[in-house]
Design a protein around this nucleic acid. Structure first.
Lengths: 238, 238
DNA sequence: CGTCACAAATGAATGGCATTCATTTAGTGG
DNA sequence: CCACTAAATGAATGCCATTCATTTGTGACG
């Protein structure tokens, strides 16, 4: 965050307004990196409801319209946040661990990062990878790992997409209210579901979301292991 | 014919405005079912961007503020839509097919319904089931099916949550642009991922999303089959 | 050394949005 | 018959993203 404190004279006093006269400043106040950093900080402190272009401008001590010299829309700011967050996802295990453990570590890390940023998921899910270089780098790391592990070329994208879909869907669950499955007055008409819910005890839903994620992830890993075996078999015959 | 078409005089002419005087009308114009139906029709015709309270009111030939006598917020309308859509998900196979085929049919149907309604996913994912009776009915049908198939009680909720997470994540993929994986000028720095993408040929991403969904779903079903086997084994020993 | 295009800021609109409120009218229960 | 409440209108309210005219500084070109 280099660009922040240059323009205003007194950083130790809570200056409220963008005290800067109109016209181009001597040195640029804004750039995409600074905007991204401020946006991320704002989102972390106040959440996505409070994340408005006006609030972001205020955090940067700038008029809202100034932002549009550096980004074309609020959506673009979300994309910048998304790409930065993706660089925080841990793919290091693809260099050190067996493929299945690497996938496990990656998926847990991926979910952990985006569980706190679910409003980005609709943006990410339909975003061309070319608009997000760090995201592309993550895919490359995963692809490389799976390829080295012997996965058939044609399965790799499908496996990544399936895992990612599961991660995104599961990220929502982490933030669900603890009593999401309480059927209330309708419990009588849903005996089997209510019994299944009751059998879970009182461990809290956050833990329950982890159980479901683990269950699904292990099933996916096991299923993909079979794919890999098929691929290796076919190649050794040829 | 006195009650039904009384408010607007000429139904054959495109009357634009809510031609009705102020004050309570002789018979109620609005109710939750009517609002839900109109909202769904509006969303289907014009999409979620065009779905505003003002547009909904216009479709119902009513002032926007009138809606708030029947729903407390736009979000509540989304919940009504969601619950109705969930009743369109096909769970019939849980009564006729083996559990694995039933899960398969259910998941494909579930994804098909919500692929066209991805803006609802953030709403559904954190919605208490008690607020959505038809959704609860779906869970009951699935729970009953899994229980009859011999799944251990404690696994059922986790399995449903995992499947649902995968379905929601996959629903986004269906609407992704065809060139979402085109890495463009960065292809050189991502050789493995680019090669994996290139190996897919030109079948279009919609088909590719189906392949990934099938791959993940079959892995999940296979993994859950193992759970079921463990449960049966443990019970026969006891 | 001047000037000219362009970059980067301000501040004042603009139009759309969900939601609220005062008001009007009409059924309903005591 | 009267008070209460339900259900409509229409006029605000406040927030939001985005645009535009304007001002000011920079750097490149002649």
């Amino acid at each position: 965050m280099p660009a922040a404190t240059s323009a205003t004279a007194d950083p130790h006093r809570p200056d409220a307004k963008p005290r800067r006269r109109a016209g181009r400043p001597p040195s640029a106040v804004l750039d995409q990196d600074g905007i991204t950093a401020a946006a991320l900080q704002l989102v972390r402190k106040s959440g996505y409801d409070a994340f408005t272009m006006a609030a972001l401008a205020r955090a940067l001590n700038v008029a809202p319209s100034a932002l549009y010299n550096h980004v074309s829309s609020k959506r673009e700011v979300l994309v910048l946040i998304q790409d930065h967050l993706t660089s925080l996802v841990d793919v290091s295990a693809f260099g050190t661990e067996p493929w299945d453990q690497a996938v496990r570590d990656w998926a847990w890390s991926y979910r952990a990062v985006f569980a706190r940023h679910t409003p980005l998921i609709p943006v990410i899910a339909v975003l061309p990878v070319a608009d997000a270089p760090k995201t592309l780098a993550m895919y490359e790391a995963v692809s490389t790992g799976l390829r080295r592990a012997g996965f058939p070329q044609q399965c790799i994208v499908a496996a990544i997409v399936a895992l990612e879909s599961f991660v995104f869907g599961s990220a929502y669950d982490v933030n669900a209210p603890a009593d999401i499955f309480a059927s209330g007055s309708m419990a009588a008409s849903t005996p089997n579901f209510s019994a299944a819910v009751d059998s879970l005890g009182e461990e809290g839903y956050a833990h329950q979301a982890d159980v479901a994620f683990s269950l699904g992830l292990e099933a996916l890993i096991a299923g993909f292991g079979a794919l890999r075996a098929q691929g290796r078999e076919a190649r050794s015959e040829a």
